[in-house]
Computed example of a mutant assay.
Amino acid sequence: MTVTPSRLGAHAPLARRGLEGAAPIAGDADAAFGQRTPRAAPGYASPIADAGGPLLAIDGVSLEYRSRERIVRATHDVSFDVYGSDRFVLLGPSGCGKSTLLKAIAGFIEPVGGTIALDGQRVRGPGPDRVVVFQEFDQLPPWKTVVENVAFPLRVARKLPRAEAKARALHYLDKVGLAPFADAYPHTLSGGMKQRVAIARALAMQPRVLLMDEPFAALDALTRRKMQEELLRLWDDERFTLLFVTHSIEEALVVGNRILLLSAHPGRVRAELNSHAWSHASLDDEGFRANVARIHGLLFETEMNAEANAEANREERINAEAHA
């Protein structure tokens, strides 16, 4: 079963990479995007990109990092495109390089091979056009109030006047349901509330791409589901472009409209699939569960086959030695 590494030159909500002998996860193409018009924030410019080409282009990217003993390859020859208003998910087992890839897109790591381009311009370092929400709760300076945490990067990176930065910060705090806590300090908030502040801070920057690195992984199951629902509601309002990292197949299917599957270390592209047909309402559907099982097979098939082949080779060698 192989991956077809072709790219399309025009935007389409359906996956561009499929698998030999297997149709991509699909539904009604129109279901990928609704008909609502995004509501504008103060000074807001819609982030929806032109349909003529990708907003973010990852082309043959290989990444490495140095351990104490050696240089480790995290990803190998990874390629994919993200279009304006995509909810694009990087899904793979632990250690497949998906978080490392997100950091490279953010500009924190330089690829050893391939290119990363945003709006046709090569990414050469961090910038306010890409904002990251990390997994850790403690992303907020504890000496600043909630509204100050959201407004501060606006003043530094966007160089907005104090009043304008505060107005935009309050707008996005209202979006995530935390306007009543604007003057609170981070230590008074729950983990889920801290993540909502981090999301508000990221959206207030109005980045070209919002990068989220397993942002809900440390939350309990109920809070995690609520945060997923809130993220999708925010996307429905704002239609921002999202690149989301997770190792949860169910979360990938619910949050994303397109999913890139990465193999075990080093991360290579296994497939690109459509997931816009699924939602939280689908969790108990037979079709949803079947696709969870199918994706699990795609993610771990190569690894399991390799182990089975190795075991078969060991048995053959033992038998040969016994009859020698």
Rank of each mutant, 00 (worst) to 15 (best):
V255P: 00
R158P: 02
M304R: 15
V254C: 03
R196C: 02
L160E: 02
N149T: 02
R225L: 13
A32E: 04
L231P: 07
A117T: 15
R130P: 00
G107W: 10
A57E: 12
T115K: 13
E303V: 15
Q135G: 01
N305S: 11
L222V: 05
M212Y: 04
E315M: 10
G114H: 11
M1F: 14
A217S: 15
R208G: 07
L234G: 06
F108W: 02
V72L: 12
E136R: 14
L19H: 01
L160D: 03
E315F: 07
A322S: 12
M304Y: 14
A308K: 09
A308H: 05
R317I: 05
G297K: 10
F240D: 00
P126C: 09
V255E: 00
R314I: 08
R270D: 12
G113W: 09
V245E: 08
L154A: 08
V146P: 03
I295N: 01
A271E: 04
E311D: 12
R87G: 04
L210E: 04
S282T: 12
L154R: 04
E307T: 13
S46L: 12
R258I: 05
A10I: 11
L203E: 07
E303G: 11
T188C: 10
D28R: 05
V72K: 03
V112K: 14
A117E: 15
S263D: 06
V197F: 10
S79D: 07
E164R: 13
Y83D: 11
D50E: 10
A40W: 10
G9C: 05
E250V: 11
Q195V: 06
F181W: 15
G114P: 09
S85D: 08
N274T: 13
R130F: 00
V156G: 11
R208C: 05
E315Q: 14
G52D: 15
G125H: 11
F108D: 03
R239L: 08
P161C: 07
D236W: 00
E286N: 09
R122A: 15
R162D: 12
L219V: 08
I48E: 11
R224N: 07
A310Q: 13
D237G: 02
L90Y: 10
A151L: 08
L234Y: 03
L210Q: 05
C96A: 01
K144P: 02
R201P: 03
L234A: 07
V112P: 08
P24F: 09
